[in-house]
Simulated scan of single mutants.
Amino acid sequence: MMKLDQSSYARIIDNLHDGLYFVDADRIITYWNKAAERITGYRAAEVIGKSCADNILTHVDSEGCVLCLGTCPLAATINDGKEREAEVFLHHKNGHRVPVLVRVNSLVDEQGRVIGGIELFTDLSSIQVNQQRIAELEQLALLDGLTRLANRVYLEREIDNRLHEFDRLAVPFGLLFLDIDHFKQFNDTYGHAVGDEVLKAVAQTFVVNSRPFDLFGRWGGEEFIGIIRNITGKDLLYQAERMRLLIERNYLIQNDQKLQVTVSIGATVIRPGDTMETLVKRADELLYESKDNGRNRVTLG
């Protein structure tokens, strides 16, 4: 069995995506990883040696109750040794609240005695933004029923809003036009039910890998559009290539067979004088350049 030395464990823990901190039996912070610094704004040097309730995280629940005053999951776990999980709001150094999912456990010594606790916390802000967006779109009948993305009606509204924003404030945005390669052939080979699963998997790739203020939606069939706000051509190309690669690396297992698809993408940034028609047409033409040049590629123009 592979063995890791102590420095390797420390490096792995320090570079986790989720925030992680340790406390002793008195809830004094003894360790604070890099993700905890990023999510909370507090550097390790500012918090180690202090209580987590000492105007640092001061978790509150959805009702605004301060958990440090009696219902703290970490304190309860140190007391009884039971694992706990809760959605709470931590205090950011800049003054705002950040929604997080916390998972807590106790730390024990070699004799099994509780000597402290550990809390792992995940930033839920982008997740909550997407859930709120879905709820709003459902209410307005602007959600694609299969993929749970914005539908074409909503995409057209959003493009129009971004055009007006560009005219008023000169805030740039980019458009990605994406099409699943050989999708009709895929459907004919594996059936529409499997094709629907592929569409949903592609859509979920957009959801979990896009910024909260960007929008991806289903334009129709196997075509998708991404509206990427406040971006340059170079960065738009990076985002498009990232999505293309992630989708290329996706796969579904059907009857012990690994099924994969690719996408071709046309990418363009708003230009003075653009209308919705000229912008979408240009992105569509760039998409077909990608297809004509071998598919599974991005063409920026």
Rank of each mutant, 00 (worst) to 15 (best):
N209E: 11
T40F: 06
Q132K: 12
A170W: 11
R271W: 10
L300E: 03
V207A: 01
H96F: 08
N161V: 04
R148D: 06
D214L: 01
Q239A: 15
P272T: 05
R271A: 15
K258M: 13
E197Q: 09
K200M: 05
Q257G: 00
L149R: 08
T232S: 15
D61A: 08
A75G: 14
W219N: 04
Q185N: 09
N293M: 02
A53F: 13
S126K: 13
L286V: 06
K184F: 01
A170Y: 15
R84H: 08
W219R: 03
N250T: 09
A44C: 07
G221Q: 10
F206K: 07
R103V: 11
A267W: 00
T71P: 00
F186V: 06
D188Y: 02
E37W: 05
Q6R: 06
F177P: 06
K34A: 14
A201T: 15
G41S: 07
L4N: 03
N250E: 14
W219Q: 03
A25F: 11
V114Q: 01
G117I: 09
L4I: 04
D24C: 08
M1P: 10
K93A: 12
F224T: 09
T205V: 10
T77L: 05
D179T: 05
G49P: 01
S8V: 06
F89N: 10
H92L: 14
R43L: 11
G116I: 00
A86V: 02
G112C: 03
I228C: 09
I56P: 01
N130G: 01
L142I: 00
E165I: 02
D5I: 01
C65W: 04
N33S: 08
M1E: 12
I134S: 00
T30Y: 01
G81H: 11
S51G: 15
I29V: 15
C52Q: 03
N296G: 04
D18Q: 15
L286T: 06
N250R: 09
G145T: 14
C72L: 10
F22L: 15
F121S: 09
Q139G: 03
F121Q: 10
G273E: 07
V129M: 05
V269E: 04
R103D: 00
K234E: 15
F216P: 04
A283W: 06
L143C: 02
I29S: 03
N255C: 05
E223W: 10
R282A: 03
G95R: 03
L236G: 01
D14P: 15
L101R: 13
F166P: 06
N105E: 02
V129P: 01
Y288E: 12
D167F: 05
T147H: 02
G117K: 10
L57T: 09
D292A: 14
L20E: 08
S290F: 08
T30E: 11
Q6M: 00
R157P: 00
D235E: 13
L137E: 07
H182N: 07
D14G: 10
Y288H: 12
G117R: 12
Q131C: 03
A45V: 14
E119W: 07
T122W: 00
T30K: 15
L124A: 03
C68E: 03
R84D: 06
L69I: 10
A45F: 05
V153D: 07
S125I: 00
